[in-house]
Design a protein around this nucleic acid. Structure first.
Lengths: 583, 583
DNA sequence: AGCATAAATAATAA
DNA sequence: TTATTATTTATGCT
């Protein structure tokens, strides 16, 4: 593996120093537990009895046993990351080196940083995904080096037009949370060129905090930063060169009062080389998984291939892709940061969302009182900074609105800035909806589960359909605006539980644990014969009829119902196929 | 758990020194898991009639008692991230080195850094997607600056215990592909936003490459930037400090010769500020989605909260969380990078995979000839590096093996290191399977589509079932080992196409050369074209019209009717799409 | 090695 | 909101 080490450099003057950090993943752990679960899957499933079907619902948890903190959590990992300065060395497994240069930031450039990570993980069974969009990211390629994304890259996707930056999403899974950074750039050879891009402005970059702090700065960004004495989350300000924190993002965190971390930070960039598999940089996120900052990653030497092994001449031909990330999510699917998003729509930054989690959450989780939390208003910030890269708004669709336009219709409106409607930030909603889905999927939750859980905690009106429509934005802005905070809060809580372990999430959601997929029923030939005879007479039996049939055949009623559904489907497909063939 | 150490800081002037950070996650608690299982949700349940409740059937399932294990266990991870400056230390595995630049940090702030993570993973049963845990993240808040992660932060989340880090996963979606970096740091003010970020230090950071390549230059970081004349994507070279490129990763890119970006890069870190929503850093990935390098992110000032606003004294207590990401995916779900993966299993790094894409790909995509491509051999690198963190393996499930154990059974075996079986790296396969699913989903592809496409290009034997079983690892190691490279190559190509646009992806998937496309229930492109033309003329055809259209297209009348219904419904969405594209 | 189709999930029609 | 359909995933069989 790699080694990395070395690193580098700095320049200027001085020192550098550097360090090395080492991280190890090593791992500790004895314990590791891994869950296997092997077979599980099916296994338990059976439990359910037919009869009982109902299930009840969960009681309110009681369960929570334990939990103590982390404890519960399933997977644990230990990570050690020692960092040493000034020394180089080799390390074992994932060493990361970071260098900071003072000047750098300022002057030069900066720093960098890095990180290493370790992830962990867990079980989760389910899937998650984390899509980020990067949509806006880029504007075309522009300029500079850095972050430009080539339009083309994005362009290719249907959604994104060529020029446009669009973005795709990038997902980063992490075990814990962390941040990920995205970027793209390509680099051919690395030599001087880059510098140019980067450097110049030393001053230029400042951290948000600063900005905020000092209003004066045009930067405008005033971010807010104050610590909030809140319970859970702590936040840090970073000033890294490379790192930035998005206030907006933070907010969510505040919601729940989650504990997160945060701190002040400075910035020097560090570069690390993680070697490990490819790790590169990390993102710092708060408990919510929201990104607080990011660390730069280094490239893994080892990995480099073509490159010369050694120090060959500087550049090689690397290719980089452009990225246009949109969201950074943690493994839980929680969004950590938005990367190249559309200007207007910062995913989480909802302005509205409340910060408090629901009761249930609180009860369980431990709140950290100490950590300061910051409430952020994101939206404003997010949006402001970058004008849009051009991305938004130009759509052409004519929305045919009747009387109640849906959010999607409004959002898609052609002209530019249609981001506001009725005082509602449509872009924000759109982003949220997108992120919501991603996060939901990351948690491995179905629309149905979300709907049921919300119905249980928030009262009725949260059917699977409702969730589906929200995700599709097939609802009016007003409805969306109303639903958004509820969904946001609930999801954040679900994510917290999930972090403690899937089991916990399941308890939270439904109460029930894992329900396993029902075992596939095997119908006897006789039964099939009977079912088909009924189907021929009536492909769509009434509930009563289904019940009767199920009794007759002694199969579960649901099984019979599904049989009919599938049978109808099959018939339709069959016919359709024929059609196709014809064509 | 946690504590971490302090770290950092620096202040002003100079040096730094730094830190150690430790994070620990400590914790492991025993698991708690509770699974409940309650009943099933209600779901559809309602259905049941009073009458019939009965049920019957259930077949004996198997109950696999086994289960235990891990299941319960959540895995815990501990992460320690000590950072010391100047010192070497102890650490185990993943060392990270950081350099700081004196001044910079100093002054401001500094830097900080980071963390490392490792991720791991779990059992997953299934699908998973990318979970990362972060478990470890942090320890509490501690000290210093840098990277420490406060435990609390994490703790708050349900998952995380107070002390324990648990981990959630983080996912990062990006649109295109790209890389993401994660990191955290905070920055104080931003001013010149972007620029600042970027510029500075040139020297300081160096890229890995350089490191590798030219050791001599200290500055090293010369970044390169040149644009590439390529068509679509632009590439920039980075030299950022923060940026690094991973050769290995790159290779994939080469495959398809995608247009992406690329360029040489050097290393200086660049910081970009993406303004947009919160973007922070980016990762550079190759076409394959593998991470090539990363760019540092900046923190958004706004977000910072508690932290002092300005540059307060150098260090603050930053807290950093540890991250343990696993994969970086783009929005498409393409994996961009692996972050803290398990040692053994680097998602993508398959050793076997070939770099060349298939023909089809070539034809379509524009190849960038110019861009240098690197062929990398990934696997070796990936895997090798880290021994395992310990993660894996402890499961307890007794695998009941008959004669042909499946990969999942083997992987879940209790004892530790059961990563190898028959010379096959099970962990690697497990990781790949997990990532494959994620990437597939990110591309929006179904198992069926993958199976069909593979059948078309690779010959028979790639049914939906096969894909499903591969993902579930319900196959023998031998079979998995055989299938893996094929899937890997195909997916990489699909991702390349996707980068060019969804349309392209669809063509790739479905259309291709030989393929048969028959298919899935959908309408043929021709039929859709005709339907759309009718739709444009009249979105709400009469029954008569529907009948006529259905005859013309030779589709079932109902199918046509439904198509119109759906098309109307979807108009909104569609429009949305356009909007995006436009953007 | 896979087909056929049961079961599950998302999206729509009522 | 609920009922159904449309799609997708998973699995029994053999």
């Amino acid at each position: 593996m790699m080694d990395m080490s070395q690193v580098i450099v700095m320049s200027s003057h001085e020192t550098i120093r550097v360090l090395e950090v080492e991280v190890d993943a090593a791992v500790p752990s004895p314990g590791t537990h891994v869950k296997t679960e092997a077979g599980a899957e099916e296994g338990r499933g059976k439990v359910l009895d037919p009869e009982v079907v109902t299930q009840d619902r969960q009681t309110p948890s009681s369960t929570i046993p334990t939990v103590s903190n982390e404890a519960a959590a399933p997977s644990v990992q230990n990570v050690a990351i020692p960092i040493s300065l000034s020394l180089p060395h080799p390390q074992t497994s994932m060493p990361i080196t970071i260098q900071a240069c003072p000047q750098v930031l300022t002057q030069d450039g900066l720093a960098t940083l890095m990180t290493g990570m370790i992830a962990q993980q867990s079980t989760l069974s389910q899937p998650l995904l984390i899509p980020l969009n990067m949509a806006g990211s880029v504007g075309g390629q522009n300029g500079l080096a850095l972050l430009t994304l080539p339009a083309t890259t994005l362009a290719t996707l249907p959604g994104f037009g060529a020029g446009g930056p669009t973005g795709g999403l990038i997902k980063l899974p992490f075990a814990g949370l962390q941040a990920a950074t995205v970027l793209n750039s390509v680099q051919p050879q690395l030599q001087a060129p880059t510098q140019a891009l980067l450097q110049p402005q030393t001053a230029a970059v400042q951290s948000v905090q600063q900005t905020q702090a000092a209003p004066a700065s045009p930067a405008a960004v005033a971010s807010v930063m104050h610590k909030v004495p809140e319970p859970s989350a702590s936040v840090a300000a970073l000033q890294t060169t490379g790192l930035t924190i998005n206030p907006a993002i933070i907010s969510p965190a505040s919601l729940g009062s989650q504990p997160q971390f945060i701190s002040s930070l400075t910035t020097t960039p560090i570069i690390t080389n993680t070697n490990v598999t490819g790790l590169t940089s990390q993102i710092i996120t708060n408990a919510q998984g929201q990104m607080i900052g990011t660390l730069p990653l280094l490239v893994n030497p080892a990995s480099l291939i073509g490159v010369s092994s050694t120090h060959s001449p500087p550049t090689q031909g690397l290719q980089v892709q452009t990225v246009t990330p949109q969201l950074l999510l943690n493994s839980q699917g929680q969004i950590i940061a938005t990367i190249g998003n559309n200007p207007g729509a910062a995913p989480f930054t909802t302005s509205t969302s409340s910060t408090v989690l629901t009761k249930s959450t609180l009860s369980h989780s431990k709140v950290n009182t100490q950590a300061p939390i910051v409430a952020v208003n994101q939206s404003p910030v997010m949006i402001a900074p970058q004008p849009s890269t051009g991305k938004s708004t130009s759509s052409s669709i004519p929305v045919a609105c009747a009387e109640m336009p849906t959010v999607s219709q409004l959002v898609n409106k052609p002209q530019s800035g249609v981001t506001e409607e009725e005082g509602i930030n449509l872009e924000e909603i759109r982003e949220f909806a997108k992120n919501f889905k991603i996060r939901r999927l990351s948690l491995g939750l179905t629309q149905t589960q979300v709907g049921q859980a919300l119905t249980a905690t928030e009262g009725p009106a949260y059917s699977q359909s409702a969730i589906c429509r929200f995700e599709k934005l097939d609802i009016t802005p007003k409805s969306a605006q109303k639903l958004k905070p509820v969904l946001e809060r609930w999801l954040a809580e679900a994510e917290l539980w999930n972090q403690k372990g899937q089991q916990n999430l399941m308890e939270f959601v439904g109460g029930e644990p894992s329900k396993k997929r029902k075992r596939r029923t095997s119908f006897t030939p006789q039964a099939i014969e009977v079912l088909n005879s009924y189907f021929e007479k009536n492909a769509l039996p009434t509930g009563q009829e289904i019940t009767e049939i199920s009794k007759e055949l002694n199969y579960d009623r649901e099984v019979v119902r599904v049989w009919f559904c599938n049978r109808r489907q099959t018939l339709k497909n069959t016919s359709k196929i024929n059609v196709f063939q014809v064509q």
